[in-house]
Write a protein that binds this DNA or RNA. Structure first.
Lengths: 320, 320
DNA sequence: ATGCCTCTGTAATGAACGTTACATGAGACG
DNA sequence: CGTCTCATGTAACGTTCATTACAGAGGCAT
């Protein structure tokens, strides 16, 4: 949903430290060569300058890449029959400030590699099949999204879903729905459905300065359904935090790197959002939301049916 | 220099001490299963016995599997908003003697997965089999939606998509976005994206009596992007008809039975919306919309990039 | 409302870690 | 043969880690 200029997310490790949302550097150098070199590349690049012991380390790392480098200094050194300081000198010679920094880089590479097993392979396969570029795009988006849906929903614990349903189906609780810039569409969608199933559903919308008024009423019996994917929005986070402090139960839809709201949330649903294109996708989130809503509806089908019938009757008699 | 076979140095007591965590039933029923259960499976197995905080950890780990579990206790805890001891209790409840032991297991899984190049994403396979009703629902929704996406996008003519992209990417045209009750979420989503890519995008929203004011300005150079699925909304149809009479080009997202708007529309995108549940699904429409938006973005990537960069710069300088 | 019990965070502790300074050893060249 | 240099290991340091004990908080049944 948020524009993800930096499609290959290993560049700045989006979730761990969401420190700077500065994307200027990316734009300026314009070319597509923005991904930092992999550790493997760094090794081959520096290969000639390595000493004998360091070459042993290099070979071991490349041979069991990248897992060997994710172990402790002592273990890695022991495995290769060298001492700990040699490992540190090795890392430093590659250009890292510290050993943990090298590990962080290795982890990022690994994460990127694990995240898109299907996404990456989807595009090359069908290029021949449909000659038209738009046909290719259609197919790519379909497959990427399907991959996201599969892996997202497979990773949702049924009991977790059930817990969220319990909260939303509890008619004694008020429900507040909130989303960020792009995820507000999900908020709208969830709001309209909940509204058709139960009373006392509120949408937190408009200028964020007006949200404060909603905070007035949120108490410990209430539920906040909030959508927040990268890049996580400050105002949304603050709202959730305050609501949490006032005792509200929070249900969070976010991406796999977890919005900071996850800290206050009672139920967290991480969803895959990448499609290998410029923008992130809301499709998998939509499916999960629909699943959640369906679950809410099934909790008390009679009540929902009566309510919708009532609504239909009212619609037939217009106000003006 | 030789690799140490016994990589996990705590293997001195291979399993003697983990008797108290009862896994016997689990091991026995799975026939010739010689490989130890994955951590993911252990989580699923113990899901019901987990406390609220522990469930957050479980969700986070499954959502970013298995990298999240390879971080330090403190980091993992911080990300999920729980304390370090909770993480340790979580690991212990899963049946591990210590946190590093769980990490070792995760590493082994990862290593095994990396070695086979055609790694099927190991995760999605097992969840549907769990008898939990919510697990069944999740699986059903996922498969139904996937089927919708496949058949919807396969039936979209690439040239039709391209025509719509041409209209939306043409910056000389104004764009108006409109949706019905439930499809307004799609309208919001499309609006926000278009808005970030180009100027002169308008959302037709609020009370339908106020829509008339928008009609004042809509002329034959303009584009109406409208979402209308069953049950087709009278006010939306009327708006589209009038816009059409004033010469606006209409792009319609609808379901396979076609909203009446299809008769005035220049580009019609019918999407499957049925999932066999109480409500229709917007997921396939979302994917198609995202495809369309991606296409618009690619039409003039430099302009989009500059615009977003500008937006970022403005964001960094808040108004108040 | 009251008391019990489970869940959860705080704070302290010992161990393991990455890191550094320094000593030792091997090889190169005069 | 001596000395200089670079590679490497040893040992000690401060830091960060996982872990544990304990006390407070929150929910639930009575």
């Amino acid at each position: 949903m948020e524009y993800d200029i930096d499609r290959t997310q290993q560049a700045e490790n989006p979730g761990l430290t969401m420190q700077n949302h500065d994307l200027t550097g990316y734009f300026l150098d314009s070319s597509q060569n923005t991904t930092p070199p992999t550790v493997a590349e760094m090794i081959t690049h520096k290969a000639e300058n390595l000493t004998a012991s360091e070459r042993k380390l290099a070979q071991a790392l490349l041979g069991n890449y990248p897992m060997a480098g994710l172990e402790t200094v002592a273990t890695f050194a022991e495995r290769c029959g060298v001492s700990a300081p040699t490992v540190l000198r090795f890392a430093s010679k590659l250009g890292f400030e510290s050993y943990p920094e090298m590990q962080a880089r290795l982890r990022e590479e690994l994460e990127a590699r694990l995240q898109s097993p299907l996404t990456r392979s989807a595009l090359p396969r069908n290029r021949a099949a449909t000659g038209h570029p738009m046909g290719v795009l259609l197919h790519h988006m379909a497959e990427a999204t399907i991959s996201n849906i599969r892996s997202s929903l497979a990773n949702i614990a049924p009991t977790e879903l059930e817990g969220a349903i319990d909260l939303l189906a509890d008619r004694r609780r008020s429900v507040y729905v909130l989303g960020g810039r792009f995820s507000s569409a999900l908020a709208v969608y969830g709001y309209e459905h909940l509204r058709s199933m139960r009373a006392d559903v509120h949408r937190v919308a408009g200028q964020s300065s007006k949200w404060t008024e909603d905070l007035l009423d949120i108490g410990k019996r209430d539920v906040l359904l909030v959508f927040d994917v990268r890049r996580y929005q400050k105002d949304v986070i603050n709202f959730a935090e305050t609501a949490s402090e006032q005792g509200a139960k929070i249900i969070l839809f976010t991406d796999q790197w977890l919005s900071p709201i996850a800290r206050f949330a009672r139920h967290v649903f991480p969803v895959r959002i990448e499609t290998g294109t410029t923008w992130d996708s809301a499709a998998a989130s939509t499916v999960l939301l629909e699943t959640l809503l369906e679950g809410v509806g099934r909790r008390d089908p009679d009540h929902v049916r009566d309510r919708i019938e009532h609504l239909e009757r009212l619609r037939r008699r217009p106000l003006n």
